[in-house]
Design a protein around this nucleic acid. Structure first.
Lengths: 182, 182
DNA sequence: CGATCTAGGTCTCGTTGACAGACTCAGTCT
DNA sequence: AGACTGAGTCTGTCAACGAGACCTAGATCG
């Protein structure tokens, strides 16, 4: 009889499928090494290809890909601009959908500044345009309560929840028919 | 004289180096395809290797790597557990540093639910443990003002700011030196 | 006893993505 | 005409991803 070291409960979340959880989908967009850095640049007002590239150090090809992907996903749009005495070119601006990423970006900045900043502090601060005070992200429920510690948040299945029907991976001996497309 | 199509201002952010901006560093951790999905699982209470793998569909090798990286970065820690009649094993739990990622995760969920959810709605909802009301992320400045639209946030150089000293990319001159060897 | 199950991994290998460096192209400036 | 500039494309190398098979220690079953 072995005494267990921590109480063993089976997490309720395991009963629910997660294959339509939007975290996975969002991270399919945001979860590439440079995507969020590109967005940071655009939020900072750096909107032109070479400006972004020089300012952030992203390789050309990668920047091309990321920008195209972000346009395709509807987070950025191309807007023509023209400096006097040059031909018209395109710059990248946030769409409304892209603007709504701001809380994500600020949450990342907030965490990064707290845990990854240089000893002399963060390079960049985000402030309220009206009063100049620094901005932070906070959690609040619809009843208006501020949620200050992480454990006061819990999760429940939402309207789109589906029961978790075993491993949708490979049940180990699935018919080995369809894979060979070579 | 060519009239320009949009007002052309040089963004102030270009004057400041961004190479110690914490967004880049944070994304070096979070900006891998599956990292945030792993974190979601752990936040949901799914803490064991195979549970995470089956529940989320992450490939084994990738999960191994992500977990090791997250432990190394101090976001997760290994805690031994034991189900009765089995040997002691390890599960992964959030460290305090990891728990502080919750706003990021919730900001992603919030954006994803709004823009990427199935028509029947999100699969998962996060609620206040005490009152059951859904949780959302909001921006607020230190003076207590709620910031509801993205343009009321602006950025200024912070204490660690350094002036931007040209392209730290390739200082290579544009000389057509050598023929390409095919 | 040997066979089997299970959790948590490795190993191998083909595909995709990151990245650097060179080349292109259209319009402008000298 | 020649050089410059912004925004790319092309090419080749190398790391990361992803699928599937294999491995291992302890528990259990026949």
């Amino acid at each position: 009889m072995t005494a267990h070291l921590v109480p063993v409960e089976s997490p309720a979340a395991l009963a629910w499928s997660v294959d339509n959880c939007t975290v996975g989908r969002a991270m399919a967009i945001l979860g590439e090494r440079w995507t969020v850095v590109v967005l940071r640049e655009v939020f900072l007002g750096v909107r032109r290809f070479d400006d972004i590239r020089r300012h952030s150090g992203i390789p050309r090809q990668v920047l091309t890909n990321r920008l195209a992907m972000l346009v395709e996903q509807g987070l950025l749009q191309k807007v023509p601009y023209q400096v006097t005495g040059a031909r018209s070119r395109l710059e990248y601006r946030l769409t409304p959908r892209g603007l709504e990423l701001q809380p994500i970006l600020l949450a990342i900045v907030q965490w990064g500044d707290r845990h990854l900043a240089d000893p002399d502090g963060p390079a960049l601060e985000f402030v309220h345009r009206d009063c100049g005070e620094p901005v932070h992200v906070e959690l609040r429920c619809s009843a208006g309560h501020a949620l200050d510690n992480p454990s006061s948040v819990t999760s429940t299945p939402g309207p789109g929840a589906r029961p978790f029907s075993g491993p949708q991976i490979a049940p180990q001996a699935r018919e080995r028919a369809s894979r060979r497309t070579k």
